[in-house]
């Protein structure tokens, strides 16, 4: 699948932002006043920045408002509604905390739940696609949730919790890679795609067109698979190992936290890039790819 920078930025940044907001809603860290303003500003900047990046991915954004209408059937629609609900509820909590020094615990708890719901709906957009077997696995939602919670814990200054969550995330990422490699295209082949398996082995003789097209650009991306091993090592080392070691074995200062967060961010960018780039779509079988 084509790793569109806007979608990678959206899923990673908004995941981190919603993670931080969820922790703030639960009162971690127990900040008030202007310090809490800085935390909320960071959370909102990441979450809203990510959402705006996702709008950049649309070819016809003037109709984006209609995306709130189909929550009965569409995970993408549910995501939009959950995101707006989470940001609105957290705004009430944040305003009360920053300007009036009042901690509305229930509102915070509800906001935190909505933040996690948003990330879950994001993960389900990918998980639901049977056409991309590497995404259509039970590991996809927990990987997204642990990205959100682990990164959120890092940003919220919870070193122990962050280390545990990120270690879990690392283990699950490795599991997903192995299971995804084994799964391949889940039994779909050029023979099932064309129905010509009844004759024998099928190969593409001539593609339907000599140039590129939307289908090939979007769903037959091949660069990422070549560098899969390197990117996996990069994602694990920077996204998981460096921040976990820093959080567990060094005194937590602003500097170590900053290094841990930057390393984590670069690592998850690599991991998320790979999440798209190495995912194979079954329709590419019609092009022999």
């Amino acid at each position: 699948m084509h790793p569109a920078p806007s979608v990678i930025a959206f899923t990673t940044l908004s995941g981190l932002g919603f993670g931080l907001l969820a922790f703030l809603g639960l009162g971690l860290p127990p900040v008030t006043g202007w310090v809490s303003f800085v935390f909320f500003f960071l959370g909102y900047a990441l979450a809203v920045g990510g959402l705006l990046a996702s709008v950049a991915h649309l070819a016809n954004p003037k109709n984006a408002i209609k995306a709130f209408s189909q929550w009965r059937s569409s995970w993408l629609s549910r995501e939009g509604i959950a995101a707006v609900a989470a940001l609105s509820v957290m705004a009430v909590f944040a305003i009360a905390l920053i300007f009036f020094d009042i901690r509305l615990r229930l509102v915070g708890l509800l906001g935190a739940l909505l933040c996690l719901t948003t990330v879950f709906t994001t993960s389900m957009i990918y998980t639901q696609l049977k056409t991309v077997p590497r995404w259509n696995m039970w590991t996809t939602p927990p990987v997204f949730m642990l990205h959100c919670l682990g990164g959120g814990a890092l940003l919220a200054g919870q070193p122990r919790l962050a280390a545990i969550l990120l270690a879990l995330l690392g283990a699950l990422m490795v599991w997903a890679w192995i299971e995804g490699d084994e799964k391949g295209r889940a039994g779909s082949t050029m023979e099932t795609a064309t129905g010509l398996g009844r004759i024998g082995k099928v190969r593409l003789l001539e593609p339907p067109h000599s140039g590129e097209n939307y289908l090939l650009k979007e769903m037959a991306y091949q660069v990422g698979r070549k560098h899969a091993v390197k990117l996996r090592v990069l994602a694990l080392a920077l996204g998981i190992v460096v921040p976990v070691l820093l959080m567990l074995f060094l005194p937590v200062t602003h500097f170590t936290a900053f290094v841990a967060i930057i390393a984590h961010l670069v690592g998850i960018f690599a991991g998320r890039w790979l999440f798209f780039a190495e995912a194979e779509h079954v329709q590419a079988l019609y092009y022999g790819r």
Binding site: H57, A59, P61, A67, T131, M219
Partner: peptide, 11 residues
């Protein structure tokens, strides 16, 4: 709105 998700879901 041109999000392309339907094209992703089509085998």
């Amino acid at each position: 709105m041109g999000c392309g998700l339907c094209a992703w879901s089509c085998p």
